[in-house]
């Protein structure tokens, strides 16, 4: 299977860099899978798990929050404001993130921001469920 270059960058460090088979992105308008030879595009991401497949049947999950993906002829670059590999993830961390999102919801009266915070909370809860498996 053809591979392509994938980079996952958070503000504090480069989390992943190398050739992969496929990446599933939690794009803001629905999950999408990127394979090699994808048309150039750019999308924002919602909170959720990003799944990196570098060998068939083997995936690494990374929780990303707030970021965007840039697909061009050189490969895929994901810039995530926060990125946590599933192995480093615990229920406590997620609870903290949920609390933060809830506080953000409380802090604003702007309907757009409220909606964003609401969906972030829902997605984080979902991520917490998914982590149990």
């Amino acid at each position: 299977m053809a591979t392509f270059n994938f980079e996952l960058v958070s503000p504090e460090r480069v989390l992943f860099s190398g050739a992969v088979d496929a990446v599933v992105l939690p794009a803001s308008e629905g999950d999408m899978t990127v394979l090699s030879g994808h048309a150039p595009m750019m999308t924002t991401l919602k909170t959720g798990f990003l799944v990196v497949t570098s060998t068939p049947g083997n995936g690494t999950r990374v929780l990303v929050r707030g970021g965007f993906a840039d697909i061009n002829q050189n490969g895929l670059t994901v810039l995530a404001e926060r990125a946590l590999p599933a192995e480093e993830l615990t229920h406590e961390i997620l609870d903290k993130e949920i609390l933060q999102a809830e506080m953000a919801w409380d802090a604003t009266n702007d309907p757009v921001a409220r909606q964003a915070a609401e969906s972030a909370i829902a997605q984080l809860r979902e991520a917490k469920e998914a982590l149990t498996y």
């Binding site: 794009a27 048309a39 150039p40 595009m41 750019m42 999308t43 061009n72």
Partner: peptide, 19 residues
């Protein structure tokens, strides 16, 4: 990137506003 045709999801302006 001017030579490559980029797809934007959501719209260009919206992405710019979040970025």
């Amino acid at each position: 990137s001017s030579d490559a045709v980029y797809e934007y999801e959501p719209e260009e302006g919206e992405i710019l506003a979040t970025l």
